[in-house]
Nucleic acid binder design. Structure first.
Lengths: 353, 353
DNA sequence: TTGAAAGCGCTAACAC
DNA sequence: GTGTTAGCGCTTTCAA
């Protein structure tokens, strides 16, 4: 039977699309399947299949023998075939809004590693900072993965829900009704940063807002407002800027022109932009002004002076996201988990002039 | 026939592994297949299949009708099924040595976008900077993708070749016999940087070497040595350091203690480390010392003063990699393409004291 | 240009 | 505990 197939394939190869098909044909001929392994072991294909997918139900000795010969023969499971049979692809889709934003690479890494632990691979898509592209990208991913991890999506809740359409999904640093979520709550750490500024003697502090569409930006702003309200400090809100280095430089102008002696930037990228803008304007940090960032990306430690910021437990964020997804995959209900950021005091906060 | 299958599935659902299976069953029942579309259009499944995979061979009007109803019914191709039938997965594997190194995110993005253009998805794995893990990761990827893009691999040529084992593959910023490659050649730009330093008056320049295992590091070092040889400049080689910010800070000590007035760092990350190290030691840049980096990562523009460096055409690197891979996939022979880096003069080079 | 039918490699219900 | 068998959804001959 197998022989016949080989023969019929072989006959094809002479004509039609030439080299290309010949290569594919060769690749196939070489391919070791469970049937080949089964034959070599003198067992049925199902037994080989079980030896891999449910090892506990096959005789220990036999299983060992199968596994060994499989390895010797160079057998590698065809995941497409398994996927077709089980309806599971073994892949998780990961969408990030902008992989060049230094917050995401460590997260991507953590997710990829955690996924590997549960024998899944990560299919990555970058939304290239275009919120409107997100639903489309998600729909495309959807057909190829078992579940989705959506990092800090910018798109509207409704369009996200619709795009995801019931597929298990977990969002990171945002909540979306009906989906699992892991969020990093920086409120406490930001409040602590506020107290720290106050103790240093700051009485007027600026809030440099991030993109209006950002859920995280709103949360952070809310925490800071709440702190300002409770304290004796005057909060000067400096409107919203792009969550980028450039955005920060623009904000620096506004900040320098204001009466504030310290500023919270939405994130580290912006904070570094602010630092650069202040430097250009000849305003020394932390002598004349203080600035605090958020996220603790690589940049925060490489800028001089080192940025005072709020450290997010990125690796854990990733691990938890994969965990939650797996729970969903196994029929668990959506769940939300909150992790806490911690304040990292460094060189950009000091006593005001 | 289809009805029967549905019935038999339905009967399964009552017992066995409960909720989990029920969900899968529901997901399946909902799934729109080519058969459903075919029935709705009153044609055979093969015709629907052809309407998607080889549209040119089906009657224009009919094809339109099929495509429209497919969209209306929410049909989404099952790639596992196609993969099983064609032997192609529609995925390209992308391995990066360290996604948190700022050189890679823009590259990853470019690759993902280029892949999307040819209707492929990207499966990402991060080697977490462990050269020895690379072969294993590649082997795992191999079974699930049509081809591989391997960015700046650190592993030995032999183990790479073996791990890839004949699968179409293209390496980035390195050459491996038998594989396609795109490399960014920075020699000309580095030579130009050298001439620039010389014109500024530098007579002794340091070479801060990158990791010994890095192909790119060796190439860059070679270019710089060649330039020094031809010019009147004394080259002081400062041994090899880790390709990291920390590595750069260590190197800064050696640099500051040397007679060199300028230094080439292996890459921008190290260059920034050098900058930080010099700043700590109270050595002003570019007044006392000059430094030039390589790659032009985000960091190079955010550090103060902005880093003089060599800009790599990252986006093009990614596009070309995908192009080459596609050619390989279609039976083309391995090919190597060289792109040129360009010098970006910025703030870290100046007249020596 | 279209349809029928077989097969891609694996899983899982069922029988032994 | 293991074998038999019938699919998973798509592509691709081959015949009409």
């Amino acid at each position: 039977m197998r022989k016949m197939i080989a023969a019929s394939l072989a006959s094809r190869v002479g004509h039609d699309r030439g080299y290309w098909n010949r290569r594919r044909w060769e690749a196939r001929m070489k391919r070791v399947t469970i049937y080949a392994v089964a034959e070599a072991c003198g067992v049925s294909a199902s037994t080989v299949s079980r030896a891999f997918s449910r090892p506990e139900i096959v005789n220990d000795e036999l299983r060992e023998r199968i596994l060994v010969t499989a390895r010797e023969m160079g057998y590698q499971m065809n995941r497409a075939a398994r996927g077709l049979a089980t309806g599971r692809t073994g892949m998780v889709g990961l969408m990030v809004p902008d992989i060049t934003n230094p917050f995401f690479p460590p997260l991507v890494r953590a997710i990829q590693q955690a996924a590997a632990q549960i024998d899944s691979s990560v299919m990555l898509v970058d939304a290239d900072e275009r919120a409107s592209a997100e639903p489309e990208l998600i729909s495309r991913l959807k057909a190829q993965v078992d579940g989705l991890i959506i990092a800090s999506p910018r798109a509207a809740t409704g369009s996200l829900t619709e795009a995801v359409g019931g597929l298990p999904a977990v969002v990171i640093n945002r909540t979306v009704p009906g989906m699992s979520a892991v969020v990093c709550d920086n409120s406490a750490a930001l409040t602590e940063a506020g107290r720290h500024l106050q103790e240093l003697g700051h009485r007027r502090v600026a809030l440099i807002g991030g993109p209006a569409a950002s859920w995280a930006a709103r949360r952070r702003a809310a925490a800071i407002r709440a702190w300002a309200e409770k304290s004796e400090v005057e909060l000067i809100e400096l409107g919203s800027f792009g969550a980028s280095y450039e955005g920060g430089r623009e904000a620096a102008v506004a900040f320098a022109g204001s009466a504030a002696t310290a500023a919270f930037a939405f994130d580290d990228l912006m904070a570094c932009g602010v630092l650069a803008g202040l430097a250009e304007a000849g305003v020394p940090v932390p002598e004349a002004r203080s600035v605090v960032g958020c996220d603790d990306v690589l940049l925060a430690r490489t800028v001089t002076p080192n940025l005072t910021t709020v450290t997010a437990p990125v690796a854990e964020l990733g691990r938890v996201a994969v965990d939650l997804l797996q729970q969903n995959l196994n029929g668990g209900a959506p769940e939300q988990i909150v992790l806490e950021g911690t304040l990292a005091l460094r060189g950009t906060t000091g006593t005001p002039a």
